[in-house]
Computed example of a mutant assay.
Amino acid sequence: MIWAAILQHYIYKTNPCGYLASSCPADQVSPLNVWIQTGTYVLIALSEILASITGLEYAFTKAPKNMRSLVMSVFLFMTALSSAIGEAFVSLSSDPLLVWNYGVMGVLAGVSGIAFWWSVRDLDRKEDELNSLDEGHLHTTDGKHMDEREKGIL
Rank of each mutant, 00 (worst) to 15 (best):
L7M: 05
E127I: 02
N131L: 11
L130Y: 09
P25H: 05
Y41L: 06
G55V: 05
E127R: 13
A84R: 09
Y102W: 07
L56P: 00
V71H: 02
L123I: 13
N33L: 04
H137E: 15
S22L: 12
I114P: 03
V90A: 14
S82G: 11
S82E: 09
K144V: 11
R68G: 02
A80F: 12
W118S: 14
P96A: 06
C24A: 15
D147T: 09
D128F: 07
M146T: 10
L108D: 04
I153V: 15
A59T: 02
E150R: 14
L46I: 12
L43K: 00
L76V: 14
Y19K: 13
L92W: 12
L56G: 04
M78Q: 08
K62V: 05
E135W: 14
D122P: 01
Q28T: 02
D27K: 04
H139L: 14
D147A: 05
V29L: 10
S22I: 03
Y19G: 12
A5G: 00
K62F: 12
K151M: 12
Q37V: 01
T79E: 11
T38W: 00
I49A: 09
Y102V: 00
G113H: 05
W117M: 09
R68A: 02
G152P: 07
L50K: 05
M67W: 01
P96K: 08
F89I: 02
T40H: 13
I44Y: 10
A84L: 15
I2G: 06
G86N: 13
V34N: 07
S91D: 00
F75L: 12
S91T: 03
A4N: 07
A88R: 03
D128M: 12
L81N: 03
H139A: 11
A88V: 03
L97I: 00
T54E: 03
K144H: 11
P31N: 10
S83K: 11
K126N: 15
R68Q: 11
P16Y: 03
P96N: 01
G143K: 06
E150Q: 10
I44Q: 09
W117T: 09
N15I: 08
V90W: 08
D122S: 14
Y41P: 00
V99H: 03
G152T: 07
A59W: 06
D142K: 13
Q37E: 13
P25M: 01
P16G: 08
G103Q: 09
E150C: 07
L130Q: 08
D27I: 01
H9Y: 15
S30W: 09
E135H: 14
E129A: 13
N66F: 01
L56Y: 03
V111Q: 04
E48C: 11
E57N: 06
S94Q: 15
S112A: 14
M1L: 09
M146N: 10
M78F: 04
K151L: 14
V71L: 05
V74G: 02
A84H: 05
Q8D: 06
S52Y: 12
G152V: 04
L130G: 06
A5L: 04
D27A: 05
S119N: 08
Y19F: 13
S82W: 08
A51Q: 06
K13F: 05
M72Y: 02
T40K: 08
N131K: 12
A21G: 04
G18F: 03
C17T: 11
G103N: 07
D134N: 11
D147I: 08
L43T: 14
A5Q: 06
N66M: 01
I6Y: 06
W100L: 15
H9F: 15
R149W: 10
R125H: 12
P31H: 05
